[in-house]
Design a protein around this nucleic acid. Structure first.
Lengths: 350, 350
DNA sequence: TCCGGAGATCTAAGCGCTTAGATTTCAGTT
DNA sequence: AACTGAAATCTAAGCGCTTAGATCTCCGGA
């Protein structure tokens, strides 16, 4: 790799000053066409690629948005050993779909997307390092040190995804967890006459609370008996690094399992199938999120779909808005959800 | 957003020099614990987040790898209008799986991943800008200006994915396209006795050539009649922005369609179903790539699977290798593929 | 021919960090 | 008490770019 050419090299080669070189790339219309051609020719000849670091340093913005992600299913402990072809992550997960939405939105607005996540080895993948690289940052729900987030939010706009607004300096994008859960639960009660419902908790406590509340709303409104406490399943690490739900062997069957997330619901379907329990005949099952895998399993999963691609878009919009107007206060957006009826609740195929 | 704190602010607040502040973060073991605590306290108090631009400028590396991607299915023309929830991209595509492999590999080695792609609006998402941000770059096959790639390759290591090695300065990672295609074709001939085979081309010309060659190898080796020229389907833009294959209405049915990619094969399955042609009874169909959607359709698609996650890993390894030893020459890695027999060729379910 | 002024180009001062190499500190000698 | 050398800290010089503001060019008009 030959020593990289800089503005200085290009300037000398073209017989102009570095300011003109810079101008040629930043504001071509302000330099005379003949000069412009000279500079561009020199740049080409020297294999000039402008340093984004230098640019970022000089003008204070990088043109990059960041996403600090987190694998629920593939924790950092997964290592080289695993056969990459047997990736359990066949279908895009919740976070993948949001990420995809961000990618598209970034592309549309001329931003690049920097993706990082917890990493043992240090390096630029860590939260603070990501933050140092970008103009704005999105973080997925997880136990990130609140102190670090606050610190970063004091420097660049930060939006927390799927994390109910707290009294912090972050923007928040969530969905109507309570309303959505209330709606599916009502469906089970009204359309399918299920009266003995068991709520199964998920992994994100904050969202889980809201969803449980929605569940209770529906149960109470129907005059059913005060719901049991949510069943909070234990999890077990699968060989692939995936977390699988574990249920007590003696769990009595309710008339319906109302799960806080699709992930849990899918595991539950598998467990039930293993025990010879028929869904939805013996027991109904519903999820929450609307991940692709839920459409593909048999029985297909009735669920509450979050508009994930749109969430990604909204995240980017919020970031852009706060970048345009740095004085703007943090934003909170709650997006609507949609109940998707499929087989696992007793509704027709798909 | 208050003006961001810098090393200078932290240094003053802690009563040390900026060198010490820097040292505290870069090489903590070299500063006395008491001083370190002082600096860290100041950093916390001031909400200090180090500027990655400044760091990158100063030490010449950013800790970021880049991926310049490209949506075959969602070209840049897709706009706000489309319902994001009806994203046709339900299942991860070829490029998504490789990207995922890169994400994991980057995380494992402490790199962050910067994702960009063609964008109309300019900004940091463009090829050269991405290049300026990263220590190494991967590009997906497409008609990227070769001149730009050469230029960038003169400054940082670049690896071209799924693009046969050319006489350039890029590293290349591909798979055994020819051998894989020969293998499925042989399977159709030997196991299913198909003798009238039609090859349907894909979108990437270079890979298509190798795959067609593999097809010809098998046909010739079986002593069958010289294969027709590949059928190169026209494509049509779907409302969602997806490119769909179009076949002539009067296309005579061979005994098997051997498709250059899964994408094309899946479209073909749909077209055939629409015409009431039964697969595999009336005609066999095979694909190439091993994308998830091929496992989920009915009939499930017999294909040649590329080790996509591993490709992503290899890409990162190559980049890392050339970063460690800048003198190293570009690398070429061809990975093996695996024939996956499913329903569409006449083999049992799944 | 000379002058004014718009447009093109240049000069020079940072942006915030890293890191040689210089300097200071300090515990241990003698 | 003076001296030593290792450890700790500091000084200062960039890294490559952007951008005010200064300067130069060059054309039309008097």
């Amino acid at each position: 790799m030959a020593k990289a050419a800089t503005v200085y090299d290009v300037a000398k080669h073209a017989g102009v000053s570095i300011a003109t070189v810079s101008m040629t790339f930043r504001r071509p219309e302000r330099v005379r066409p003949s000069t412009r051609d000279l500079v561009l020719a020199a740049a080409r000849a020297l294999h000039y690629v402008p340093s984004a670091s230098a640019r970022g340093l000089a003008d204070g913005r990088t043109g990059v948005l960041g996403l600090f992600s987190f694998d629920y299913l593939l924790p950092v402990e997964v290592d080289e050993g695993a056969d990459p072809d047997e990736d359990c992550r066949d279908f895009p997960l919740y976070v993948d779909e949001i990420q995809r939405g961000m990618e598209l939105a970034c592309r549309r607005h001329g931003y690049a997307l920097l993706i990082g996540g917890p990493s043992r080895v240090g390096g630029a993948g860590n939260l603070t390092d990501i933050a140092g690289h970008v103009d704005g940052l999105a973080v997925f729900p997880q136990t990130l040190p609140a102190e670090a987030l606050e610190r970063i939010a004091g420097r660049i706009p930060v939006v927390a995804v799927s994390e109910p607004p707290d009294d912090d300096r972050l923007s928040h994008v969530t969905v109507d967890n309570r309303g959505g859960m209330r709606a599916v639960t009502e469906h089970l009660i009204r359309a399918h006459g299920r009266r003995d419902l068991l709520f199964v908790g998920g992994l994100n406590p904050a969202e889980g609370r809201d969803r449980f509340a929605g569940f209770q709303d529906a149960v109470r409104a129907a005059g059913l008996r005060v719901p049991r406490e949510p069943l909070v399943p234990r999890t077990r690490a699968l060989p692939g690094g995936r977390a699988a739900v574990v249920l007590p062997a003696d769990l009595p069957l309710p008339e319906a399992f109302v799960c806080a997330t699709d992930d849990v619901a899918l595991d539950l379907l598998e467990i039930l199938a293993g025990r010879g329990v028929r869904v939805p005949q013996d027991v109904a099952v519903t999820g929450f999120d609307g991940i692709v895998a839920g459409r593909v399993v048999r029985p297909s999963l009735t669920t509450v779909r979050q508009p994930m691609a749109e969430m990604g878009r909204v995240v980017v919009d919020i970031l852009r808005g706060r970048l345009d107007d740095p004085g703007r206060a943090p934003v909170f957006r709650e997006l609507p959800v949609r109940v998707v009826l499929r087989e696992s609740c007793g509704c027709g195929p798909r």
